Simulated scan of single mutants.
Amino acid sequence: MTTTTLPEPAVDVRDLRKAYKDHEVLQGVEFAVAPGSIFGLLGSNGAGKTTTVRILSTLLTADSGAARVNGFDVAQDPGRVRASISLTGQFAAVDEVLTGRENLILVARLRHLTNSGAIADVLLERFSLTDAGGRRASTYSGGMRRRLDIAMSLIGDPEVIFLDEPTTGLDPQSRLDVWDSITELARGGTTILLTTQYLDEVEQLADRIAILHEGRIIADGTLAELKDLLPPAEVEYVEKQPSLEEIFLSITREEPRTRATAEDSS
């Protein structure tokens, strides 16, 4: 009889606690992220998502509990944790004075990588930014800045990427572009921990979802497992109306001539 050994979690969090004065932000948070998966940490503002990510990325020290990233203890071996991760915050951390390509080259040089220009060109192509690579980042749309930010986070081939609310403030099309980028990263074997307050985001992206509420994980499982927590709703057959997102994307994706014809006929 053979036994199957499960791989060690890429991120393993046990009884994590953090308080600011009298306010206990994290109250025994626990979860595990499988290698090469997208893990969605879902919660409203103030639930403790960013605090959790800051602890895991060694920017903040927990009061108690333990956490390991890529097998390294975040408290005992922070240097090796930082060497194997990348963090993208809620707002794109690009230098607006530099071009997109220059931003990528700068990060590659800071990571002491050779052939920084070639690295930049590969990432510009991967994230559909080649045509904009020579423009200053200040001219980029929100979605383009976010894609550049994620591209910058990939320099050095980190095994784990923390994305802290990566689509905050983006328009619907830009959100979809970022979703595509995240999905592509996971297909390449990168482990992604995604924090968000958007239900549709984790529903579309995450292999596993943990719901963080008032500093506690109150549910953890696949989408199907979470759906099983509630009894099935009574089915009513009604005509399905398009959502506002579907309407917006349908209209904005029309060819200019089609839109002009529609306007002329009105």
Rank of each mutant, 00 (worst) to 15 (best):
M1N: 10
P7E: 15
V13N: 02
R14S: 13
D15H: 13
H23P: 11
Q27C: 08
E30R: 13
A32K: 11
V33L: 03
L41V: 04
L42V: 08
K49M: 05
I55V: 10
I55Q: 06
A67G: 10
V69S: 01
R80S: 14
S84W: 14
I85H: 00
F91E: 15
V97N: 14
V107L: 04
A108W: 08
H112P: 00
G117A: 14
L123V: 10
L129M: 05
T130R: 10
R135L: 13
A137G: 11
S138H: 15
D157Q: 12
P158Q: 02
V160G: 02
I161V: 11
F162G: 07
L163Q: 09
P166E: 00
P166N: 00
T168V: 10
T168H: 06
S174E: 14
I182A: 01
R187W: 11
G188W: 08
T196P: 15
E203A: 15
E203F: 13
L205C: 06
A210V: 04
L212A: 11
L212I: 12
L223K: 10
E225Y: 15
L226P: 15
L229V: 02
E236V: 14
V238I: 13
V238D: 07
K240P: 14
S243M: 13
E245Q: 10
T258D: 03
R259G: 00
R259K: 04
E263Y: 07
S265P: 00
